[in-house]
Simulated scan of single mutants.
Amino acid sequence: MVITARALNRTTLHRQLLLEREPVGVAEAVRRVVGLQAQHPGSPYVALWNRVAGFDPGDLDEALSGFELVRSTLMRLTLHLVHAGDYRAFREAMEPTLRGSRLHDPRFTKAGFTAADVDALLPGLLAYAETARTGAELREHLVEGRGGPVEAVVWRMVRQYAPLWHAPTGPPWSFGTAQSFVTAAERPVLRDPEASAAGLAVLLRRYLEGFGPASVADMAQFTTAPRGLVRAAVKTLEGELERLEGPDGAMLYDVAGALRADEGLAAPPRLLAMWDSVLLAYADRSRVLPPEYRRHVIRVNGDTLPALLVDGYVAGVWRPVGGGIEVSAFRPLTAADWAAVGAEAASLGRLLADRDPHVYRRYDHWWVKGVPAAESRVLPS
């Protein structure tokens, strides 16, 4: 079976709750979309506003404070928000990548550390962090255990590798500049190839449920797992998957019997969060992001700007400014498009007004450097 590019687009939007806001709770929404990028504390709130009907940010506050949803370093070595029940399998899946990138970094050796040193210190660190601790407290605990200095880069690598959850530190977005950490309630098994392989199979099946159909290259991009490990995990899932031919002839996998959306479905405009997962989950990002716009949205350092979707595809970027939401469209939009985007901007403005009207302010320098636009408008909020 061949699937068209537009059907892939509509299926992705459907599974990512971007065709229609769904009347589901925040925990179920996060499970449905696999996880949410969470480098910026405000982004999961904006992401769920895009996806959940009647989204109440207080519901996300509550899910985070109760550790029903947790924030930790996972896929692509970046901060993600995932359901606590998914964390162990996802972390075990990421073990080879996290261990290789964090504990075998040349800066470790330069600072006099090895992976074996971390292995020796980790049990004590996790026991100490069973009660939430600040980053400074945990670094000092490492210093005491080490009997010597622990450079900032070493502490950063350790905290990203260790199975730690970020503990909420307060408004406006649950996590602020002050950092606090707590040991994962259900600790993953580390340094165990069998556990990692089993976890990767779980993660990839969930990925296909939330982002499929997709290729091995897409799955490797989403996880940052080596393609050899991805292929091995896919092989263990073969009885649960079906194969399709993509529009470019690539082999795609999907969960057997999964619903795939009709390419004729309408796709309403959306004002995506910064680093929204839908822009980062594929090797072939043209599914949602036209190639000619990629460098305008995903900048040279990896910053992924808050993007405008029109008819299911990126058509511009947005940012909060005094008086509303500034939308910079990469191509001309119709009057009807602008009216629909305006309604979204007004709704988003109400969400931000109670939290941080200028969320993403620190990234305004990208607009100062220049964002190419066919037209820019400040839409009142």
Rank of each mutant, 00 (worst) to 15 (best):
L237D: 01
Y313L: 12
A27P: 06
E144C: 12
Y293P: 07
N50P: 08
T11F: 00
P106N: 04
V255D: 08
W155T: 01
A201H: 09
A29H: 04
S174Q: 00
E245A: 13
R76E: 05
L18F: 13
L190R: 02
L305C: 09
E263K: 10
A136H: 10
H358P: 02
E140G: 02
W338K: 04
T78D: 01
L333C: 10
E326A: 15
V230Y: 08
T236Q: 09
H104S: 07
G58R: 11
S328N: 03
R146L: 07
T78M: 11
A250V: 14
G264K: 04
T4P: 14
W366E: 00
D276I: 07
Y363D: 15
E92F: 03
L272F: 13
A329N: 09
P188R: 02
W338N: 00
G246C: 05
R295Q: 09
A5E: 12
K369H: 02
R32H: 13
Y360V: 15
Y253V: 08
R187D: 12
Q39C: 10
A315L: 15
A129V: 07
R15A: 13
A315R: 13
E92D: 08
H141I: 02
H365C: 03
R51I: 10
A225K: 00
G264N: 11
V34M: 15
R51P: 08
V189M: 15
H83R: 06
D61E: 05
P291W: 03
S72F: 01
A273K: 03
A7M: 07
W165S: 03
K369S: 10
K369M: 06
A27T: 11
G25R: 14
L272S: 15
D105G: 03
W367M: 02
E263F: 12
P168L: 02
A214S: 07
R270V: 04
W49G: 01
E238T: 14
P96T: 04
D364P: 05
G124K: 14
V310R: 07
